[in-house]
């Protein structure tokens, strides 16, 4: 839950936020789809629920990652790395505990994370997951994440103006 005091600090500018985000970038899907059940669980482990910070679910971090996977500005190799990392994380989980990552207990998942983070791929992959999680935390809500600007409220951020009215698309500049 976000502290009430945090909301009060928002100032007049944030009152200009749209009531509802145009979620054209983030996508809706079932979290049972691979690799999102794995990454969804990882999001919770990396940025766990707390009294003040918004949760990845509140941010729609997984839906945002779905948008990243459709984004033509993201290199295909990066998208493949995201998929591979989820598969490798599950391989490590199977090796250690004979179960997929999202079926492990919290303590088991923590042990798996401690193992993979020692690997170069693991450190790089979790950094990559964090980079899009932080985008979901701090982007303009028009991207369909940072829902109701909870990330901005939490960190006392005021956005720059003018704010985007819609998410960028690859062909936006081409049309001008």
């Amino acid at each position: 839950m976000i502290e009430r005091r945090t909301f009060l600090l928002a100032g007049a500018a944030l009152a200009l936020l749209p009531q509802k985000s145009e979620a054209a970038y983030a996508v809706n899907f079932t979290v049972l789809e691979s690799p999102y059940q794995t990454i969804g669980m990882l999001h919770r482990d990396l940025f766990e629920f707390s009294a003040s910070a918004p949760s990845p679910v509140m941010l729609n971090a997984l839906g945002y990652l779905g948008g990243v996977m459709n984004d033509p500005r993201i290199e295909q190799s990066e998208k493949q790395f995201i998929l591979n990392g989820a598969a490798w994380l599950n391989e490590q989980s199977e090796t250690d505990f004979k179960k997929a990552y999202y079926h492990l207990t919290s303590a088991q998942r923590n042990r798996v994370l401690e193992t993979v983070i020692q690997e170069t791929w693991g450190d790089n992959w979790i950094w990559t997951i964090y980079s899009y999680l932080f985008e979901a935390l701090l982007c303009d809500p028009v991207y369909g994440a940072n829902t109701h600007a909870v990330g901005w409220y939490w960190l006392h951020l005021e956005p720059g103006y003018p704010r985007p009215k819609s998410p960028f698309t690859e062909d936006k500049n081409e049309a001008i």
């Binding site: 701090l138 003018p162 985007p164």
Partner: peptide, 26 residues
Amino acid sequence: GPYLTEKEFTKDEIAVSRRSIYTPRL
């Protein structure tokens, strides 16, 4: 490049800095 003017410029970190929309795709 395109002919962008003041009305096209916003402070959108995702577009400008994270996706580098003002430079060609590599």
